[in-house]
Design a protein around this nucleic acid. Structure first.
Length: 216
DNA sequence: TCCCGGATTGACT
DNA sequence: GTCAATCCGGGAT
C-alpha cells in the first residue's frame, strides 16, 4: 500500500527497452529496499547467445518464458544467486538482470546478511563493516542484500503489498542513463545492453569477460 | 553418463 | 594483476 507498483504492462516489452526504464525504481523485499542503478538486458531464444534462453525452454529457465514482471532467480558458480525481472508477453523468454543498486531501506538487515555469508567465513573487509555503497553493488551481492534466493524464483513482483515487489517510484532521468557492453559475457559483447546511472557510486566496476583455461 | 565452464565474488601476490 | 571456491545446467559422447 502507499507506494504504487510498476504495472505488468511495463515489462511486456523487449528487455533492452525495459532495462533503462528500470533504473531508479525500487525493489522491496521484506525490510530491505534497493534502488536499481545498474541492469542488463537479455534477449529471446535464438537471438541472444548470452541469454539463458538462447537454446530454448528448459526446467531451469522456465520462469523466463512465463508472465512478465516475475522474478527469475538462478544459481551460478556453485555459490551465487542472481535475480532477473521477466520481460515480454508470456512465452517469449527474455528478461533484465539486476546488477546493482543502492540500499535505501533496511541497511542494517542488508549488512547483516552480507556479513553472514558463509557461517565459517570471516567477515569480509578484514572485519570492517561493508560500506553502504557496496551492500548491493553486483548481482550476487544485490540478491544477498535483498534476501533473494532459490525459493523466490518465479514470484510475481507486480502485486501491491507482495514481497518482493517493484515500485514505480521515480525513474532515473534519461540524461543520467548510460549504456555499454554487458559484463562477464563472452558472446554478443558488442550489444550495448548494460545500462547504468552514470556517476552513481553503487554501480559495479566494469569487468570484461575473462576466458579461463585449465592445465592439461 | 561425462565433463566443461559459467549473467561472481573475495582473498591474495 | 591471479586464482580458488563450489554447484549444476546442458551439450557432447
Amino acid at each position: 500500500m502507499g507506494e504504487r507498483i510498476l504495472d505488468r504492462e511495463f515489462f511486456a516489452r523487449p528487455a533492452p527497452e525495459v532495462a533503462p526504464g528500470l533504473l531508479g525504481r525500487v525493489l522491496v523485499h521484506g525490510p530491505v529496499a534497493v534502488r536499481l542503478t545498474e541492469v542488463e538486458a537479455y534477449g529471446p531464444p535464438g537471438e541472444d547467445p548470452a541469454s539463458h534462453t538462447y537454446r530454448g525452454r528448459t526446467p531451469r529457465n522456465a520462469v523466463m518464458f512465463g508472465p512478465p514482471g516475475h522474478l527469475y532467480v538462478y544459481f551460478t558458480y556453485g555459490m551465487h544467486f542472481c535475480a532477473n525481472l521477466v520481460c515480454m508477453p508470456e512465452g517469449r523468454g527474455s528478461g533484465v538482470l539486476l546488477r546493482a543498486g543502492e540500499v535505501v531501506d533496511g541497511i542494517p538487515e542488508a549488512r547483516s546478511r552480507r556479513h553472514r555469508r558463509g557461517t565459517d567465513a570471516p567477515l569480509s573487509g578484514a572485519g570492517r563493516p561493508i560500506p553502504d555503497r557496496d551492500l548491493a553493488r553486483g548481482p550476487a551481492r544485490l540478491a544477498v542484500a535483498l534476501g533473494i534466493a532459490r525459493e523466490h524464483n518465479g514470484l510475481d513482483c507486480c502485486i501491491d503489498g507482495a514481497s518482493p515487489r517493484i515500485l514505480a517510484g521515480t525513474p532515473a532521468a534519461p540524461a543520467s542513463v548510460w549504456s555499454g557492453p554487458r559484463t562477464g559475457v563472452s558472446s554478443a559483447a558488442d550489444v550495448p545492453w548494460r545500462f547504468w546511472i552514470d556517476g552513481d557510486p553503487t554501480v559495479s566496476p566494469y569487468r570484461k569477460h575473462v576466458p579461463r583455461t585449465r592445465p592439461t
